[in-house]
Nucleic acid binder design. Structure first.
Lengths: 329, 329
DNA sequence: GTGAAAGCGCTAACAC
DNA sequence: GTGTTAGCGCTTTCAC
């Protein structure tokens, strides 16, 4: 690769001028022209490693997520990517598998690589951001909060849980189970709270403690709990899935048992990715994942640009994408 | 962040020695100990930007894919990530949206960032690797070939297309349509060839030209073509989907038309991600995407390690995951 | 085995 | 508006 010196020589200017041309400083039109021509001839691209070293900042942001195979997060990643691309940044996708150690490793790398900032969907409740924040690098939390006073974008989880439940109650179901994610993850417990509030009000006779089950945010988690629910002496007449993958698992099990909706009511918080289900049988409470990514990325670039206002949290509302039809009698 | 100089001072050695400790050169045990202690005390992490600049190579690899929202590619990414992580490398995920310009931009960045190598699922047929290959950086092609003489991992697409078709013929279907991806994409046409070969042999009366339809490798593509097929005067009795997303789209449309398998035969090349379908009704020809990622990453690290053997292409076989049951009479 | 020192390519402070 | 120059933090000769 050509360097700034070779370009300078060919254009008959100093290296500093070449740098200025590529960084938007004031350079006379004639020299700009000469430099651009020389750069093109030599197929010059600025060496980013050198630039990062010098500037103490690279044009890369880290997107740290717990599960790259969950379409909820890839949809979000997509939003982040689109904004970053436009800002001329690249995105390093860091998959933590919900493991705190992997997460810590990636955060360390982000610092060591002088990445411009981080968008983080925390692996659990013990994320330590002391080091990275002390470097002054901006971190935006998404989906889950970290306990630090930083910018963030979250879903209105309580409302989403409530909306899903409400839809099933409206359709005539009463013994509505809730399959939540891991208890220690905020999104999981908040959604469960939404369910609980609606149930208390509209199905006060239902035994909430029996109906609430914690699990993992994965297909297998949904399957496992659904099997348990079906084995109960008193099987629930409906179920709310705490996220998209739990929903997939639950529906798989129901299908295998020939118990498809509306024989049993099903509501899912989050979109059913690539569903082959006929719509209108299942309640879908859509979470605007792409929008979350876009919003987080925009906030991040504001911070990278030097914005110093107090930390903000944006709460994104869910949307009832399809509602369960009335329960058959 | 602490630098190598501060660590050196605290440990009472020279910066060079600190560097050696972190790069596995010969250093006396006592000094290794002192350096490690000092590094730990200062919470030292080597500055990767500086290292990259000096070594002309960073501990980052690029994974360039056409669609980050396609589970086939995220599954592959997962495989790549796992291998990279173990090798101490990070992965930059570059989503090209199947656009050649975005792809070119990412390849340029890979060079400018001194990335150690690239794993590339090409956007189309016009990928230009001249620049990046001239820098000596290894590029591994996956899923689709680029026309360059480089290492690669591909699926046995012809065989996959044949297996999918064969399964439907075995189940008693005869007028079997094929919904392929974009005509200019090799994976698409190869799979179609597999279908064609089986059809010629086992359903010679079928009008192949009418039954083959090119589309996009996306859900909407599958939907569109499926609608067209259903509108035909002479509706096919079965359909092979050229990839996972086409399969999803096709099944969605069929479901909406109340035409679920086995009323019409369906075979999908690739796994149905997060399917809520009852298994055993649809033929699934599984493609080992994760394995493709793992294999490609291993090859890449061999090259990064200095391997100079002639280019290799690994062909991965598909696997019949479920087979359509016999057609009802 | 260890230290001194040069230099990777760039940017920014300073001088003109 | 433009050139000179120092230095970002590391690795790697080259001496010893």
């Amino acid at each position: 690769m050509a360097t700034i010196y070779e370009v300078a020589k060919l254009a008959g200017v100093s290296p500093a001028t070449v740098s200025r041309v590529f960084n938007g400083s004031t350079v006379s039109a004639a020299k700009v022209e000469a430099v651009r021509a020389a750069a093109k001839r030599l197929n010059f691209t600025p060496n980013r490693a050198a630039r990062s070293l010098r500037r103490q900042e690279s044009e890369v942001i880290a997107l740290v997520i717990p599960d790259i195979e969950n379409p909820y997060f890839t949809e979000m990643a997509r939003g982040v990517e689109d904004v970053a691309q436009q800002a001329g940044y690249s995105v390093v996708l860091c998959n933590t598998d919900a493991q705190i150690e992997k997460e810590a490793r990636y955060l360390r790398i982000a610092v060591a690589e002088h990445m411009a900032g981080v968008i983080l969907a925390a692996a659990g409740e013990h994320t330590n951001l002391d080091d990275i924040l002390s470097t002054g690098r901006p971190v935006i939390e998404v989906d889950r909060s970290t306990g630090y006073d930083i910018d963030g974008v979250v879903m209105a989880n309580r409302a989403a849980g409530a909306a899903a439940t409400e839809s099933l109650v409206d359709a005539g179901y009463r013994r509505i189970a809730f399959v939540a994610g891991p208890q220690h993850i905020e999104t999981a417990s908040e959604r469960a709270e939404g369910w609980r509030a609606v149930m208390r009000r509209r199905a006060p006779e239902a035994p909430l403690d029996e109906l609430l089950h914690y699990s993992t945010f994965q297909v297998d988690g949904g399957r496992e709990v659904m099997e348990q629910l079906l084995a109960l002496p008193d099987v629930p007449d409906a179920v709310v899935a705490g996220n998209n993958l739990i929903g997939v698992g639950a529906i798989q099990v129901l299908t295998e048992h020939r118990l498809t909706p509306p024989q049993i009511g099903v509501a899912v918080i989050g979109s059913l990715p690539f569903t082959t289900l006929s719509p209108r049988l299942v309640t879908i409470v859509r979470l605007p994942a792409r929008h979350m990514g876009v919003t987080a990325a925009k906030m991040l670039f504001e911070r990278i640009g030097g914005d110093r206002q107090p930390a903000r949290t944006v709460v994104l509302r869910s949307e009832l994408q399809s509602a369960t039809v009335a329960r058959p009698r």
